[in-house]
């Protein structure tokens, strides 16, 4: 599994959706079960998978699929 596949798989598992549903619109405003618990679960899984620790602002900003991708770039994770 490459990084993008790992990344997508975490999103799909966290929000219980198929990877094909992940796109630029996928985020806190469009996903019904995106709440503080799922967001923190998502961040925890991403941190564990890529062996990184996100800064506070990045954890709080982690609110859409596309923003999450941008954030990971800052940690030298190529997707």
């Amino acid at each position: 599994m490459n990084n993008l596949e790992k990344f997508n798989s975490i999103f799909a598992e966290t929000f219980n959706v198929d990877s094909s549903q992940l796109n630029e619109n996928f985020g806190i405003d469009t996903v019904a079960n995106w709440d503080s618990v799922t967001q923190l679960s998502l961040v925890t899984a991403i941190e564990d998978e890529f062996n990184i620790m996100l800064d506070t602002d990045d954890i709080l900003d982690f609110k859409t699929y596309s923003i999450a991708k941008e954030i990971l770039k800052k940690y030298q994770i190529e997707l």
Partner: peptide
Amino acid sequence: ETVDKFSEM
């Protein structure tokens, strides 16, 4: 799944 993820986090 939701419960297990909550518990893990």
